[in-house]
Each structure stands twice: as structure tokens, then as C-alpha cells.
């Protein structure tokens, strides 16, 4: 059986410890669940410190067993940092034609800070994405008051562009209500909606 006929959509998420990957991943998992589709996944966070890599796998659809995604399997990759976006490409997480959406934050890896290797530019990323036949989406919001909201901006982009099939705005909002309350929920919902509007206006 060809794998393309299977009911399966794999999402690979990565970033740096402390960027709120856990929350972003849980929001997407719950949004998929609210859409009535089967979902499973796993966070991999060997050493939980700030500054190490954090990865989360999400698998949607009935034809999935392992919570972890095989190489070149993901249809969508979400990165919270520029170097980690490149890592998703280097590690061949995406299938050909897959979509890589990233928030353009820069937290320099150790090698860059030690001066052993240069910082990556957005051009480097565009070149690599083109060579590997991936669709690249850069996300950045200049006036963001708190870096801990970058994950919600990414979520809004994913929602507005319907990057996860069958999952709509309402499902994402219900996921936010599952996981947040009070002022935090208000702040993030507002940011989410305004970014969705902004995005839809742009297109």
C-alpha cells in the first residue's frame, strides 16, 4: 500500500528549551482532538534545561501507532528559532514538498557564541529550503511585548493558513481555553485573534 493513501499527517516541532514548545505542542494536540480526529504524540526533552534542544512530535490520523515520526515523514515542521528551523531541514524531518514554518528568533547555539561557526541568516534558510524542495514560511512580529508569546503568534499563523488539515480557528481557541485561564487566556486569545486577522488581511 502506498503511504500517501494512509490517514496520517505528521507534525514535527522544535526549538530551544524555555521557548514554550510544550505549550505550543499541547495546544495543537488539543486542537486536533477538538476537531474530532485521532491524535497522538510525544515531547522529547532529554535534559530539561533552558538552552538545549526541545522536540515535540504530533501525529494526526487513524493510521499511526508510534508517537514518534520517522525521517522524511512530516508534512509540517514548526520551529521556534532560526537555527532550529535549519536543524529540521538538516535532519530531514520533512517529506518533499513539506511546509516549514518558523518564528525568526535567534538564540545563538554554543558554537556561534564561541566563534567557531557563523550565525545563520534567513537567506541560508531560504537556500536550504529550496534545495530540499520545501515551502518556507518566516514569522516575525516586531512589536511583541514578551518573547513568551512567540508560540501564540506561530499558532495563529498555523491556524490562519489552515496548515493542519481539518483543524479550524474554533478548535485552536477551544484548546487555549483548556490550558489557560484568567488574564493569561485573555492576553493570549487577544493576540491570537489579532494576529489571525492581520494574517488574513495580508493575504
Amino acid at each position: 500500500m502506498s503511504s500517501s493513501r494512509l490517514d496520517r499527517f505528521d507534525i514535527y516541532i522544535n526549538g530551544v528549551g524555555g521557548q514554550g514548545i510544550g505549550m505550543l505542542s499541547e495546544l495543537i494536540v488539543r486542537a486536533i482532538d477538538h476537531s474530532g480526529q485521532v491524535v497522538r504524540g510525544a515531547d522529547t526533552h532529554g535534559l530539561a534545561q533552558r538552552g538545549g534542544m526541545v522536540v515535540s512530535h504530533i501525529r494526526k490520523g487513524k493510521d499511526t501507532y508510534s508517537p514518534l515520526i520517522g525521517k522524511k515523514n512530516a508534512q509540517l515542521a514548526v520551529s521556534l528559532e532560526r537555527h532550529e528551523a535549519m536543524r529540521a531541514i538538516a535532519e530531514q524531518q520533512l517529506e518533499e514538498g513539506g511546509v516549514l514554518i518558523y518564528y525568526d528568533a535567534v538564540w545563538q547555539p554554543l558554537g556561534v557564541r564561541l566563534g567557531n561557526t557563523p550565525q545563520l541568516s534567513n537567506n541560508d534558510l531560504e537556500d536550504a529550503a529550496e534545495r530540499c524542495n520545501l515551502m518556507l514560511i518566516r514569522v516575525f512580529q516586531e512589536d511583541l511585548p514578551d518573547a513568551r508569546m512567540q508560540n501564540v503568534i506561530l499558532l495563529a499563523e498555523i491556524a490562519a493558513r489552515v496548515l493542519v488539515p481539518g483543524v479550524s480557528l474554533e478548535h485552536y481557541e477551544r484548546a487555549m481555553e483548556d490550558l489557560m485561564e484568567g488574564a493569561l487566556l485573555e492576553r493570549n486569545s487577544k493576540l491570537f485573534r489579532s494576529h489571525v486577522r492581520r494574517q488574513s488581511g495580508d493575504n
Partner: peptide
């Protein structure tokens, strides 16, 4: 067999760090 081909993209490692 597995899908993975040798990667042509280089990327600096990001080892775990002590926090700020």
C-alpha cells in the same frame, strides 16, 4: 529501507546549557 539520505545541510550543535 529507511528514507534518510546523507544530509547536505550543516548546522551547529545546541548542547544543553546552564541557565542564565
Amino acid at each position: 529501507p529507511s528514507h534518510e539520505a546523507p544530509s547536505s545541510v550543516e548546522i551547529p550543535a545546541r548542547p544543553a546549557q546552564m541557565c542564565p
